[in-house]
Design a protein around this nucleic acid. Structure first.
Lengths: 352, 352
DNA sequence: AAAAATAATACTCTCACAGAGCATTAGTTA
DNA sequence: TAACTAATGCTCTGTGAGAGTATTATTTTT
């Protein structure tokens, strides 16, 4: 019925997120060895990326549903107790996985977002919690607008957009760049994170783009060209666009964070990342970490208390300097009261 | 490598949406024959559902990406020019497809939402545009709160929630029902459409639940029980919860509409359903059709004009009764100006 | 041709809420 | 005891949504 070339396999990729202190983290593992010798017999450079998302195969025989499959191998491999779990997206682009080129099956990959509490168990040695902004540095605006976004990325993206010889393409790219990177005085939307990563990839400004280009070239494909920007400037920008990941894992990561940022607006997901009791300031810090933007402290407190999203436990936090903060907990009953309880994604301050 | 039981196949299901006049429509086809004789040799009743979503297999050999695969067979089968296309969700529950029970492969199904303009081409004879509220009648609040939601569905859902013998389950169900069906004076959230369908399914108040229960029973499974509500009342409610669809297609439909309703808020997707030029009132009607709720006319106009989402073409609409309306078109430039341009989902008016 | 009906369009009032800043309180540290 | 730090309380302001009233431009009816 299905020949060799129709072989399919389904993989489940998890973006497992936690926040420790003010650092949003994602669990990474060492990637499987993907290196295929190129035509000259050398092992390609792109095989060396040290970060991958945890991955497990979907086994129809064992797994009743996709989510159960995911939970099952995450549990086996990490022992983490996943809280909120959410399916993100299914990727099946040809040659997503270079092993396909060597005759492997078409790998369909289903991305998942999973949240765990800070006080989560140990980590084993094969995995590592990384600051997610190491992979997406342009998304952290907590210390203000990152200057090199304005100075390097944005100008390059514009040049890329305008470098196309096709009128229609130029217009389309210009529109997308403008929206994603907030050009014409528009506001930077923290949620439009995936589009930004995809544009950077298309323009050849992230390491994976270069990797895939080289791979295609070494295989003698003509599709390996990245139009527009000079090689040297691309490499220069790549040095600033953060760590690469294996395969398309950084795209999956971007999808996850976009979803998470978006969801903050209308669903009380933050509380999945916090311990039972927390101070309002802690809550604020976690949201800022996720949103990559700072919040006005007083307004933030007004928001969460007015909307009755939290309630005081009666306890207070000891230890720190300054006036001790009251402890709060999530008020589950908001779910019964408000249609879409969430905490808004702040637009990062524009230095006008 | 993979035994028989590990066989996999991937299907692409499309929810193709258009709005004609004030009627939101979805393209349906006649389902494939799924009937399996039960143990007594009879053909099960659930095989008779006349509506299915258009479906096509994903063929790794032919299709470079999932979306291209979808577009390709939709084009072949219907000739429709799809506008906006968006992946929804991937379903792989065991026994989703009863053919699996007869030794077929595990069918993984990827749902897509696609929008087409009203002035779309012909339809062929094998497909039919149906009012989507025929499948989800409780979601249409344009003529006010549907009385039987209050009188039939809600009380039954509460009884179901409280019928569990397990304290924890009761609490969980109560919360979900309360949120989804807006019980304690909470507002009915038009977007929470999928959760409502899923709850109705779990409570056995949609035809598919009964169908699956009978199927499981005929196969001698014990999982076929639906706890809580008496059979007669369930059947009574089922008569009011709209037309069933093949397999889990109604769930996919619900996913699609939830996504579409949600997206209206922050992305100008409506315009994918409208012709180039339209009157504001037409735009309003389309949004009302999607949202299943009525809008305040004056405020609506203020919103779309103030936010500069549309611009006057200069033309006017001839023909109708009353003062002729100006024609407008979508102002693509909003995309450059505003971070998340959309038209809000109205909360349907609550009586009193 | 005038009156009635039908829609479109304009304007006002009110309330909720977000953004920004100032002021006060309750602790810790020097 | 003073200085410092952080939490908490309060005000002012602008924007946008919800609701209602009034006016204008057409078609239909009489």
């Amino acid at each position: 019925m299905a020949g060799r070339a129709d072989a399919l396999s389904i993989g489940l990729n998890a973006v497992i997120v936690a926040v420790t202190g003010e650092v949003p983290r994602v669990l990474t593992v060492e990637p499987p060895k993907l290196a295929l010798p190129d035509q000259a017999g050398r092992t390609a450079k792109w095989a060396e990326t040290p970060y991958a998302l945890p991955f497990g195969p979907f086994e129809p025989r064992r797994h009743r549903t996709l989510e159960l499959g995911l939970r099952s191998w995450v549990d086996e491999q990490t022992g983490l107790a996943l809280g909120h779990v959410e399916q993100l997206y299914t990727y099946a682009d040809r040659n997503r996985d270079p092993r396909e080129l060597a005759g492997g099956p078409r790998v369909v990959s289903i991305g998942y977002l999973a949240l765990v509490r800070e006080d989560a168990p140990q980590e084993d040695t094969k995995s590592e919690w990384c600051d997610w902004y190491d992979f997406l540095p342009w998304e952290d605006w907590r210390a203000g607008r990152p200057p090199w976004v304005d100075e390097v990325i944005r100008p390059l993206m514009w040049r890329w957009a305008e470098s196309s010889s096709d009128e229609e393409t130029r217009r389309g790219r210009g529109e997308r760049v403008s929206i994603a990177f907030a050009n014409n005085g528009a506001a930077w939307d923290p949620v439009r994170l995936l589009e930004r990563y995809e544009l950077l990839y298309e323009a050849g400004l992230v390491a994976e783009a270069e990797r895939d280009r080289l791979l295609a070239k070494s295989r003698g494909r003509t599709g390996g060209r990245i139009g527009g920007l000079p090689h040297a400037e691309r490499l220069n920008a790549i040095a600033a666009t953060g760590r690469p990941m294996s395969l398309d894992h950084r795209r999956i990561l971007a999808t996850a964070l976009e979803r998470l940022r978006g969801k903050l607006n209308y669903r009380p997901v933050v509380f999945e990342l916090l311990p039972e009791d927390f101070t309002l300031f802690r809550l604020q810090r976690v949201i800022e970490a996720l949103a990559g933007a700072e919040l006005h402290k007083q307004n933030f407190r007004r928001l969460v208390t007015n909307t009755r999203l939290v309630e005081a436990t009666g306890g207070r936090e000891s230890g720190g300097r300054g006036r001790p903060a009251k402890l709060y907990r999530f008020r589950r009953d908001v779910l019964l009261e408000r249609p879409a309880p969430g905490i808004g994604m702040p637009a990062p301050k524009q230095p006008d």
